[in-house]
Amino acid sequence: MNVIEVSGLDVYYGSVQALKDINLVVRERDFLAIMGPNGGGKSTLLKAILGLVPVDSGEVKIFGGSGRKSRRLIGYVPQFSSVDRNFPISVIEVVLLGALKPGLSFFHKFNRSEKLRAVDLLNKVGLGDLKDRNISQLSGGEFQKLLIARALMTEPKLLLLDEPTASVDMSSSQDIYSLLGELNKEITIVMVTHNVMAISSNVKELACLNLGLVYHGDPELSEEVVNGLFGCPVELVAHGVPHRVLKEHQEGNHVS
């Protein structure tokens, strides 16, 4: 069964078209990076997959289903700027919230096995020592890892990440990619990024989005595709190394 199956998807915001005839298939254990300029529809596609925006035509299937139940198989990692980092909550509490059941739970307490699992996950993402810290005391990279741990707490079959390395320093970003590479042995991963430099060697497939799907395939881009995508020359990706120093590019309307 395909993990994600998007067919003929159109999404409009009022009279503005955000996505045009998207067809995309994600298979078991893929690691897909969806790339494109800001405003190119990446977030909209993500929201359509999560069922957060109304679809004008076409359909999105998650593990063959389209209801709420199949969406609960998604472990969502939001862009960290969308989450309030000053909220009074500790690291371990955030992870535990990933274990909440659907609907309201009356006088709910997390049980022992959930707590143990939360600690395990924090160790896995490298935050074991910080579990009792308040989230406001975490660095950007640590906070991003925390959001990944929370998503893992939901026992997902698909991990969906929105700009996981935006505003994270180089070494944290490497950590995050090696973590994702490790996780990818068991679960399918789809991430969205506007940062061409952010594509790691762990990524197995690349999709480029600018209103429509411009490209989908191996994570190697030709100059032609990239120029078509961003409307100006940008760095090209060399395959196999985590950091690429690439061709010079001029300032233009592309995203940095």
């Binding site: 509490e93 659907p102 609907g103 309201l104």
Partner: peptide, 27 residues
């Protein structure tokens, strides 16, 4: 008090709670 954990999830990250189906609209 009865829905303390649900409130916590809702107040901290409404979008995530919504995706998890944790009664966001009701809250």
């Amino acid at each position: 008090l009865a829905f303390f954990n649900n409130w916590k999830a809702y107040l901290f990250d409404e979008e995530f709670s919504g995706i998890r189906g944790s009664g966001v609209i009701l809250l």
